[in-house]
Design a protein around this nucleic acid. Structure first.
Length: 507
RNA sequence: CGGAAUGUGGCCCAGAGGCUAGGGCACCUGGUUUGGGACCAGGGGAUCGCAGGUUCGAAUCCUGCCAUUCCGACCA
């Protein structure tokens, strides 16, 4: 059993949340900082999670009629310049390519040479290059809609980076669509937002709030931006995905025009939407505990890991053969949701205890020890990672296989319900200004403890109030789509308001 | 970009102007072990973040730079 007074991850969440986060990543062997400033190396355990995210989302995109394509990494500087708000939003964080070769100087060191006539920027997002391409694809209303997605890397020269949450280069998908009417484009924006919500909640077991961003949090160049917002265990909000209605702004900037049925030349309506490797950060901070990563089965690189226990070579053969039989049966169970069941064996030659902790820290949903005693009793020593006490249960071997699908679903549900309960416990409807301020004020100013959460409060809609509330280090996360209209007064200025918004500290 | 802290084998840390830079974990070899982070013995591995400077002598003092972490500003 786990020692009562010791956890695998130090510090614990309540001691130092940011460091705990880094340690979980290190302990699970998911990623590390590279020699390139702000860029990470995603290691197999972390990358497989990304591959699983890709598989699931890609299916969802295909099911909603989207096709994948690929656009260039480089964007001519002049393209970025086409949409004024867009340039302004990204200008401060662009990597710029100015040369196309290297030559040796007199000291023999390599220096850039062959200056480009027009600098290229490394895409921070692809609206402009894709818009320029779409303008060539669209002539008639019959060409619409265009529903495209690309899986790619992008670069944003962030000043302050953190593994998975904000890195200079990151992996993502960006959907870009073109429509003949405003209504259709708005529908698309909301549809994809709901795809994200469904994915986050069903596959990653992360409860999210869908809503519209306030003007100041809007994507540069968008008419309206929507987000899914999740609560991390330090009660801060994390924007886990966005969907933008771009109106005709990019169509005008990139000249995406078509002839309508009644022979009019019209600008098209576009959308874009994306999620990134930041989702992995959300996953870590939603489910993990003081013993490391905890993975929902539907996204875990492996569902089950078997740890053989033996003394002699003879016993080893017996135990491994027993495990192989079970693995064959598990393979026979077919798919677990969209993916094949993955049941690995860890037969590395190392101490049992250490090996055990290894898998606990990696967050594999089910860890199964198999030794001679188990074989005699036809049972298995099973540990569910969602059990915070790391309790080991002895389960009949046949029952285990028969119930595997249900057990994994149960873990998946438990994690979702636990995360949802945590969020709900830390969400308050607040109408009193003093209460609001107290809610967001830590007791210890120098080293703030985990405090606050989400506040559902009225907001008059003015940028000034939003700005002044930043004193409390909070922002409006979004204006929930399922929020009802109700009369109230702005939590800050007291002006009349029709709607509650989500206030929180944020990543 | 401002403020603070840190940088010593793969990881964690000691060393505060003077012998060949230490220890724990990890790694390799041999042995004893093995159902919740084993033990014994032996062994390999470091241009002390980088570049200058001060000094007879620098991991240690000075200057600059770089990186990481935290706080802030900025930000899909």
């Amino acid at each position: 059993m786990a020692k009562d007074n010791k956890t695998a991850i130090n510090p614990r969440r309540d001691e130092d949340y940011p460091i705990w986060y880094q340690e979980v990543i290190k302990a699970a062997d998911m990623a590390e900082n590279s020699d390139v400033r702000g860029c990470m190396v995603i290691k197999p355990w972390g990358y497989t999670i990304w591959e699983n995210i890709q598989k699931e989302l890609d299916d969802m995109f295909k099911a909603t009629g989207h096709k994948n394509a690929y656009f260039p990494l480089f964007i001519p500087l002049s393209y970025l310049q086409k949409e004024a708000d867009h340039v302004e939003g990204f200008a401060t964080e662009c990597a710029v390519v100015t040369h196309h070769k290297l030559t040796k100087n007199s000291e023999g060191t390599l220096v850039p040479d062959g200056e480009l006539d027009e600098p290229l920027i490394v895409r921070p997002t692809s609206e402009t290059i894709i818009g320029a391409t779409f303008s060539k694809w669209v002539n008639s209303y019959r060409d619409l809609p265009i529903l495209i997605n690309q899986w790619a890397n992008v670069v944003r020269w962030e000043r302050r980076t953190r593994l998975f949450l904000r890195t200079a280069e990151f992996l993502w998908q960006e959907g870009h669509t073109v429509h003949a009417t405003k209504e259709e484009a708005v529908d698309e924006t909301i549809k994809m937002l709901n795809v994200y919500k469904n994915f986050a909640e069903k596959v990653m077991a992360i409860p999210v709030i869908t809503g519209e961003k306030s003007e100041s949090e809007r994507f540069p160049g968008a008419v309206s931006t929507y987000s899914i917002e999740a609560m991390m265990q330090d009660r801060k909000a994390l924007q886990a995905g966005t969907s933008h209605f771009l109106g005709q702004k990019f169509a005008k900037a990139s000249n995406i025009k078509f002839q309508s049925k009644d022979m009019q030349e019209e600008y098209a309506w576009t959308t874009s939407w994306g999620v990134s490797t930041r989702l992995i950060g959300a996953l870590i901070m939603t489910h993990s505990d003081d013993n490391g990563l905890v993975l929902p089965p539907r996204i875990a690189p492996a569902h089950v890991v078997f740890l053989p226990i033996y003394k002699t070579d003879e016993e080893r053969d017996t135990v491994l053969a027993f495990i192989e039989e079970i693995r064959a049966e598990i393979r026979g169970l077919g798919r677990y949701h969209e993916r094949h069941l993955v049941a690995d064996v860890d037969d590395r030659d190392m101490r049992g205890g250490e090996k055990n902790w290894n898998w606990i820290k990696k967050g594999v949903p089910l860890k199964v020890e198999v030794g001679m005693r188990d074989i005699e009793k036809n049972s298995l020593a099973v540990m569910r990672r969602d059990n915070p006490e790391l309790k080991k249960d002895f389960i009949d071997r046949d029952e285990f296989v028969k119930n595997l699908h249900d057990t994994l679903d149960d873990i998946q549900n438990t994690l979702f319900e636990r995360a949802k309960a945590y969020r709900d416990e830390n969400t308050r409807t607040i109408d009193d200004k003093d209460e609001f301020e107290a809610y967001f004020t830590p007791e210890n100013k120098d080293k703030p403890e985990i405090h606050g959460g989400f506040a559902l409060s009225h907001w008059c809609g003015s940028v000034t109030c939003e700005e002044e509330l930043k004193e409390l280090k909070i922002t409006i996360r979004n204006i929930p789509l399922d929020g009802k209209e109700e009369d109230g007064t702005c939590i800050h200025c007291g002006a009349p308001s029709k709607r509650r918004v989500v206030f929180a500290k944020a990543y």
